[in-house]
Computed example of a mutant assay.
Amino acid sequence: MKRKRSLLLLICYGFLATLAVFYGLLEMQSLFVTFLSFHLLVCLGIPLLHALWEGELRTRWRLAWETFDKSGMAYGVLLGVFLFTAIVAGMWLLLHHGVQEERIRFTLERWGLTSAWIGWFALYTVIVNSLLEELLWRGFVLQRLLRGVRRPTAIIVSSFFFALYHLIVGVVLFGLQWGIAVTALVFGAGVLWAWLKGCFPSAYPTWISHLLADLGLMVVLVVWIF
Rank of each mutant, 00 (worst) to 15 (best):
M1Q: 01
R3H: 05
L8C: 02
L9I: 01
C12F: 14
Y13T: 03
L16E: 10
A17G: 14
V21H: 13
F22T: 13
F22Q: 07
Q29F: 11
F32R: 14
L40Q: 06
C43M: 14
L44M: 14
I46S: 03
W53L: 03
E54A: 10
E54W: 03
W61P: 00
L63S: 10
T67L: 07
F68N: 01
G72M: 02
L78G: 02
G80D: 08
L83W: 12
M91F: 12
W92L: 06
L93V: 00
G98H: 05
V99M: 09
V99P: 07
Q100G: 04
E102Y: 07
T107G: 12
L108V: 08
E109K: 12
G112V: 08
G112E: 11
G119M: 10
W120N: 08
N129Q: 11
N129D: 12
W137N: 11
V149K: 11
R150S: 13
R151Q: 11
R151W: 09
I155Y: 09
S159T: 07
F161I: 10
F162N: 05
A163S: 15
A163H: 07
A163M: 10
V172R: 13
G175T: 11
A181H: 03
V182P: 00
L185A: 12
V191K: 05
L192M: 15
L192F: 14
A194V: 10
L196V: 05
S209K: 07
V219I: 14
L221G: 10
V222Q: 12
V222C: 11
I225V: 15
